[in-house]
Structure formats: C-alpha cells, structure tokens
Amino acid sequence: MKTPTEWYLIVSALLFTIGTVGVLVRRNALVIFMSIELQLNAVNLTLVAFSRQWGNLVGQVLAFFSMTVAAAEVVVGLAIIVALYRKRGTANVDDANLLRW
C-alpha cells in the first residue's frame, strides 16, 4: 500500500501557508524566522515527495542542498537579529526602520 504523492503535497501546502501567515502576522523577529524555517521544510517535503513520484534521487539531493543553504541562512539571520537587538534593545520588527529616512 503506497500513500499517494498528492497527500504529501497537500500537507506541505498547509505547512507552507501556516509559515506564510506566521511571517505576515507575528511581530517578533525570532518567531518570523521560525516561520521561514517552517516554509523551507515544507518545500523540502515537496522535493522528497517528487523524488519518489519520479523514481530518482535528484529531489533528495536538492533537499540536502536546501538544508545546507537553510543552515547558512539561519546563522546569518540570527546574527543580524542579535546585532539589531544590541542596537535597538528590541526584537520587534516594527522598530527596525534603519533604512527609512
């Protein structure tokens, strides 16, 4: 008994949308970052599901690269949040208006 690929894609769509709504709704920079992680994971799930759908391993390799890029992205993003917190004393994204004049 095989589970259809469609189910995985729909779960992935739900997770991606929850991540999107999290980015739009939350104001804490750390929680926004976690929502972005959720979106990345949803896309990884899609890649692995399609890897099984087409019967080759390229999707899994791509998901592996995506994890690496996500790790680098998280490290840089958290460093920016820490730098912002040192400067402004808050992790609220509404207070970060350094580029506005």
């Binding site: 759908q53 087409w54 019967g55």
Partner: peptide, 10 residues
C-alpha cells in the same frame, strides 16, 4: 497529479 504514487517502485 491525481491520486497516484508515481514511479515509487523505481
């Protein structure tokens, strides 16, 4: 897609 699991055997 529809309800298929594709080339899972491959």
């Amino acid at each position: 897609l529809g309800l298929s699991s594709g080339h899972a055997a491959r």
